[in-house]
């Protein structure tokens, strides 16, 4: 049984992020019957106008970035993607395939005959977005899974603020709250604005999709920069914002292995007076934990 004190605890495990927020376990059952409503998967952060349109249609919206069935996320993608590929893209493809499980059909058969219940997938495919690798496998979704695909560009430039990034919430919860903030904004709910906390260190990068438990090694006084901060601002294509960091606090520049953003993370880590570049594939290794904890200890962060 996992608990919050366990360093391997992964708060995202078994969680599904929908426009109704994170839901867990049996509560997911409402997804089983979308009835006559459009059931739309989204990848990345589509622009506000697209999300408004989905709300108007009363669509059931599933974030394929966050939705996760189990930890064996590579298995369903073995014949689709190369082994050396971003863990997050593998997760997205696995997520799309596994949605069919709700209809208790055999996954591959159902998918191949076009019975995946997702009626449409909207992929944010901006010039500078979270990732261009997803764009390269999008044809698979359209041609092999027979799911309607819409590529949209997010050019939103109005920054909504970074209150969660600079708050005293534990880092793993920050990632969840930031993802949830996107939905809160969509539904015109009151923005979540936790109190500012003075930083001891910082995390720069995308959320650690391959294993969120890495967040448990950071203190609550961790500020968040990079693409995750762009997401809280609802400006995922804001490269200027993404390039920012705080030179006064030790900073971990993180990227998924095989992610194009690794080049940016590595470059900024060298530029930062007390920066370190850490990449991770699926699952934390002992060496990565040792490298991270040594960095934090030697900088008197923990």
């Amino acid at each position: 049984m996992e608990d919050k004190d366990d360093k391997n605890y992964n708060p995202m495990q078994d969680m599904v992020l929908t426009r109704h927020g994170f839901i867990k376990g049996k509560e997911q059952s409402f997804l089983q019957n979308p009835k006559d409503k459009p059931f739309v998967g989204i990848i990345g952060i589509p622009p506000k106008e697209v999300m408004d349109e989905l709300i108007q249609k009363s669509a059931i919206i599933l974030s394929l970035d966050m939705y996760k069935v189990d930890q064996l996320i590579t298995e369903p993608t073995d014949n689709i993607l190369p082994k050396a590929y971003c863990a997050q893209i593998k997760r997205i493809i696995a997520n799309i395939l596994s949605v069919t499980d709700y209809w208790t059909e055999d996954v591959m058969d159902s998918v191949l005959v076009g019975r995946n219940p997702i009626s449409e997938i909207i992929i944010e495919d901006s010039e500078i977005c979270r990732c261009n690798e997803m764009g390269f496998v999008a044809d698979f979704i359209e041609n092999e899974l027979k799911i309607k695909l819409r590529r949209v560009k997010n050019k939103d430039i109005e920054r909504k603020g970074d209150f969660i990034c600079k708050s005293g919430i534990p880092l793993d919860e920050k990632f969840g709250k930031i993802a949830g903030y996107f939905y809160r904004d969509m539904e015109k709910k009151k923005p979540f604005r936790p109190e500012y906390i003075k930083p001891k260190c910082a995390f720069w990068g995308t959320p650690p999709w391959g294993d969120f438990s890495i967040a448990n090694y950071f203190p609550i006084e961790t500020h968040v920069y990079g693409w995750t901060r762009c997401v809280e601002n609802l400006t995922p294509g804001d490269l200027k914002l993404e390039l920012e960091f705080d030179p006064d606090v030790p900073t971990v520049f993180f990227s998924q292995s095989f992610c194009p953003k690794a080049g940016l993370a590595s470059y900024l880590a060298n530029k930062h007076p007390r920066g370190i570049f850490i990449d991770m594939d699926i699952g934390l290794t002992r060496s990565t934990v040792a490298k991270l904890t040594a960095f934090l200890q030697l900088n008197n962060v923990i």
Partner: peptide, 21 residues
């Protein structure tokens, strides 16, 4: 298997890295 280093300036830790795999 691997390599690692530490950098100190004025007796203060500045940087480290580890090419883990």
């Amino acid at each position: 298997r691997d390599a690692k280093y530490v950098v100190f300036e004025n007796r203060n830790f500045i940087h480290s890295d580890w090419n883990t795999e």
